[in-house]
Amino acid sequence: MHIDRVAALDIGGTKIAGALVDGNGRILVRAQRPTPAQEDGESVMRAVEEVLAEVAASPLWSGATAIGIGSAGPVDASAGTVSPVNVPGWRGFPLVERVREATGGLPVTLVGDGVAMTAAEHWQGAARGYDNALCMVVSTGVGGGLVLGGKLHPGPTGNSGHIGHISVDLDGDLCPCGGRGCVERIASGPNIARRALEGGWQPGPDGDTSAAAVAAAARAGHPVAIASFERAAQALAAGIAATATLVEIGIAVVGGGVANAGEVLFAPLRRSLRDYATLSFVQRIELAPALTGTDAGLVGAAAAAALGSRDEETATIGG
């Protein structure tokens, strides 16, 4: 099955983005709305419908043959539902059915946002050419996805590789997912900022308390900001090493807004990975920043749609 043009949705705790994507991964049309994450489920769905309506207003929409959704998780691809940890109004929300209705019956493929980013990175990013890879999104939350044996491995519900909810601190803080000491609870952007503030870091005159502001302070040598990123790196390294030990990945790709901190994150991450990835078969794991940038979710959702339902694995996107 050959798909020349697909629609895509990227749904996170901060924004809802939509696009039309061609067979070379180029975004032809895009739209975006803030996620009304603290409102009820129908309010969030209205934002999705507004994004879809804006994209569908393009004359190029008539060529779209499928739609892929990459959503913050957990998702349940088998049931077509989503329950994003950071969007409390959506619990078991029938997103696939609602998007199918909103798009006039287009075939819909749902995967977790980490799986979508992984599809993008394996297609045309840092994981290209690797048969076994872990790709991670470190942002408002921490997600991930796996490529095993040269193929995207979303798992039965679309959540495989969801590294953010591996516990790396058995007595750690409670996570909104219900677990304790999860990677996400330590390494996500909001938690990096929370820990820095609790440690005594003060934002500048602009009052910016984002992880990006903490990264800037770390770059300038602020010890509390540095320590918060080092703790995040330690949690990420422990999760990566555990994953590598289980499934023998050759590369770990790290993207998302927090990865924009650059060496503030990657220098301690490389050090910590050496501490945790100690067995002979995981010592050579490569670590790389993602290459597909902020469009990874959209491009990856499009790639997942092109692959179609999992019983049509011969599907290709583009040539």
Rank of each mutant, 00 (worst) to 15 (best):
G150M: 02
G150K: 00
G150Q: 09
K151E: 15
K151N: 15
L152R: 12
P154C: 05
P154F: 06
P154I: 11
G155M: 05
P156Q: 06
T157K: 14
T157V: 12
T157A: 15
G158Y: 11
N159D: 01
N159S: 11
S160A: 15
G161A: 01
G161I: 12
H162K: 02
I163Y: 04
I163M: 13
G164V: 04
H165L: 11
I166D: 13
V168K: 03
V168W: 05
D169K: 10
D169F: 05
D169M: 03
L170E: 14
L170Y: 06
D171Y: 14
G172D: 06
D173I: 13
C175Q: 05
P176E: 01
C177L: 05
C177Q: 01
C177E: 00
G178E: 05
G179V: 04
G179S: 11
R180S: 06
G181K: 05
G181T: 10
G181M: 02
G181D: 00
C182S: 12
R185E: 12
R185H: 03
I186F: 03
A187E: 01
S188A: 14
G189I: 12
G189M: 09
G189Q: 07
G189C: 02
P190N: 08
P190K: 03
I192D: 12
I192H: 00
R194K: 07
R194T: 14
R194E: 13
R194S: 11
R194V: 06
R195Y: 09
L197G: 01
L197F: 04
L197A: 15
L197R: 14
L197T: 02
E198N: 13
G199F: 04
G200S: 11
W201S: 09
W201A: 12
W201N: 08
W201E: 10
Q202G: 06
Q202N: 10
Q202S: 14
Q202V: 15
P203E: 04
P203A: 10
P203V: 06
P203C: 11
P205S: 13
P205K: 12
D206L: 12
G207I: 04
D208F: 05
S210R: 07
S210Q: 09
S210I: 08
A212V: 04
A213M: 08
A213G: 00
A213D: 01
V214D: 01
A215C: 04
A216C: 07
A216M: 08
A217N: 13
A218E: 01
A218M: 00
R219E: 15
R219C: 14
R219L: 14
A220C: 03
H222D: 15
P223S: 08
P223L: 06
V224I: 15
V224P: 07
V224C: 12
A225W: 10
I226W: 06
A227T: 14
S228Y: 09
S228Q: 06
F229C: 05
E230S: 12
E230N: 07
R231T: 13
A233K: 10
L236I: 07
L236C: 14
A237Q: 13
A237M: 08
A237H: 09
A238P: 08
A238R: 14
A238T: 12
A238M: 13
G239K: 02
G239P: 00
I240Y: 06
